[in-house]
């Protein structure tokens, strides 16, 4: 029960941080942390298949795609490099 509460609170905290940061690279790292916490929550809910998928796709592949997109465009939210 304690682990559930910690994981859900960490999901909400990292999601809010990902919205609030103006540096998009840190926002991407926060999204990866949110995916990791979400996979921990899936594991606690006894769905290891979904946890593996979430950890691989959410924490690694989407982060790589976001990093590529940031590399091609601007790094900060107001358009400055």
């Amino acid at each position: 029960m304690i682990l559930h509460i910690i994981a859900l609170a960490a999901i909400i905290a990292t999601a809010v941080l990902a919205i609030e940061f103006k540096d998009l690279l840190i926002s991407t790292a926060m999204l990866a942390a949110m995916s990791l916490m979400l996979s921990l929550e899936f594991y606690l809910l006894q769905a290891p298949d979904v946890a593996i998928t979430e950890a691989a796709v959410g924490a690694c592949l989407s982060t790589a795609i976001f990093i590529i997109a940031i590399k091609k465009t601007a790094r900060y939210e107001n358009g400055a490099c």
């Binding site: 298949d49 593996i52 998928t53 691989a56 796709v57 690694c60 592949l61 790589a64």
Partner: peptide
């Protein structure tokens, strides 16, 4: 636990890195 989709996603993650 796991299977084709999960393992393929992990291999694709390694190749993406």
């Amino acid at each position: 636990p796991g299977g084709g989709f999960q393992g393929g996603a992990i291999i694709a993650s390694a190749l993406a890195i």
